[in-house]
Write a protein that binds this DNA or RNA. Sequence first.
RNA 1: GGCGCGGUACCCAAGUGGUAAGGGAGAGGUCUGCAAAACCUUUAUGCGUCGGUUCGAUUCCGACCCGCGCCUCCA
Length: 493
Amino acid sequence: MALRLFNTLSAKVEEFRPLVGNEVRMYACGPTVYDYGHIGNFRTFIAVDILRRYLQLGGYKVKHVMNITDVDDKIIRNAAAAGLTVQQYTAKYQKAFFEDAGALRIEQPQIVRATENIARMAEFIAKLVEMGYAYKTDDGSYYFRIAKFPAYGKLSKKDFAGMEDGARVDVDEYEKDNARDFALWKAPKPGEASWDSVIGPGRPGWHIECSVMSMQELGESFDLHAGGEDLIFPHHENEIAQSESLTGKPFAHFWFHARFLLVEGEKMSKSAGNFFTLRDLVLKGYKPSTIRYLLTSVPYRNQLNFTFDGLQQAAASVDRLRNFRQRLAGKFADGSSLTMTTLGQQTSKRLRDALDDDLNTAQGQAAIFDMIRAVNTAMDAGNVKSGDVAALLAPLEQFDRIFSVLQDDDVAQMQRIYEWAKAEGREKDISAELEEILRSSALTDAQIDAKVEQMVAARKARDFATSDKIRAELVAQGILIEQTKEGVLWRRK
RNA sequence: GGCGCGGUACCCAAGUGGUAAGGGAGAGGUCUGCAAAACCUUUAUGCGUCGGUUCGAUUCCGACCCGCGCCUCCA
């Protein structure tokens, strides 16, 4: 495996190699659980998931850690407004996040939570104070002194040299030495959630969380740190400053950032009316697999324009993939052909080459679709033999270990979100499209198989009226019927 | 203002110093009792605009236009 990845730190595409042996230690910034996850969040998490899956496919053992930010200003404010504790407030959104990530087939990383590591954060800050990298202000808050860390700006390529002396910074209204200094620890305000610690009462700043938890789980230097592009500055820059100041060692070696997406050509925002959570889309009748496919169809460093038209197209693409796999599971004449085996091998190689190239998912998809067209043509001509199936299935399964859209558990996931919507009093958001898809789960596989058999029998007897009637019933139940050379196939809408 | 990314067919979107992947949609056709699926053909002398370098540029350089991101915790 020769994966080449863009490293934000070097601003170049570099060959990725773990620091030690065959294990990749990676840390990803996770969600702040104050609301349901939106598709922008999930673009980033899916990009990281693709990376993780590809590393695993390449034979690496991946230790993938992700934090849950379960305390921050917004959470404290919202919880207080709702009359709940911080933990009560965040529990609901944490649960929702894991469900949604699961629906999108994101492999779950090892989870660490801010609120479970507060003592360690306080100790970390105490050490920074001892070393002169941090200082306490009169109100009991702590700040990092960026003037002590000359490399500050190396990730985001910002030049703070002129600010080191603080000459042009108005510091009068702050207690900070320099306006750029960032909070490590915030002193409690009256009525706010607060934790006692070796450095006094308060709560951790956002940046310190990730430094402490990543190094706790992965060591002082580890392989890769990921997040959305907005985190480059200040979050990741600050993590580097804190961590490298404390240890004197390089922190993460690779920095992986996913580009933001646009929705219908605009920045996603609540005010623009183009803000969608995963659940919003499912209620409109879009399948999780469709959403995942769309989010993987543009390489992670390119801006992705998320549109409803794009969702329709993605759905068609996923259907094509699933139809193909289903067709490959059919019966073929004995024998095998060099052409098909070679095609399978070439496709695997194209797939690997595409993903090796900074995870070019679009090219990977093109490789698999090229194969699908060629194999469909061969099947139509009767040129695919039973001995070819394994060789053709191999690249398809390799593809799916990365993209993960073939296995159809969409209806179960949608059913769960449907129940949730009813429980939350959001019946009015449940679309007719969603209800139609859910109807397709009313019949069991055995019941459908039986109906299909009746239909085939009627057709053999040239009783087309009966055959069409059965087919119409199945279609009304959301079951799609296909006649192929290899027999009658069905699938749920 | 500073730093950075991008503008490719009807839509989404790869890509390359040597003549434009893939998916979707549309049109025509094959197969089929009819559907559906699948397959075939077809849709950019053209890759934001204008210059430049080059035997040759969509690909490199420059200017301009447009979109987007970051520059006080938004993935």
